[in-house]
């Protein structure tokens, strides 16, 4: 699967952009947090698309955000 790019996203309508990012994000999160992957992905999709794209390329950033999301979920 080729990486998601800004231009690919820009060609899609706004709601579809989040969908496209979610489809990439979900499997990454599912690998680590199978039970909560749907909720964590839903939370992370509220982040700006530009940052989400960066997170898809940066496992460290993604993990940090996932941990933040988990902390909020458990609060």
């Amino acid at each position: 699967q080729e990486p998601l790019t800004v231009s690919m996203l820009a060609a899609a309508p706004l709601h579809k952009q989040k969908q496209m990012i979610g489809e990439r994000l979900y499997p990454l999160i599912y690998n680590v947090h199978t039970q909560l992957a749907g909720k964590i992905t839903g939370m992370l999709l509220e982040i700006d698309n530009s940052e989400l794209l960066f997170m898809l390329e940066s496992p460290e950033s993604l993990n940090a955000k996932v941990e933040e999301a988990l902390a909020v979920l458990h609060a």
Partner: peptide, 22 residues
């Protein structure tokens, strides 16, 4: 009671509804 439906859950292959009110 007041059910809090947050966060919205993402399901692969299902159209994302979390931001449909924008």
């Amino acid at each position: 009671g007041s059910s809090i439906n947050w966060p919205p859950e993402f399901h692969p292959g299902v159209p994302w509804k979390g931001l449909q009110n924008i």
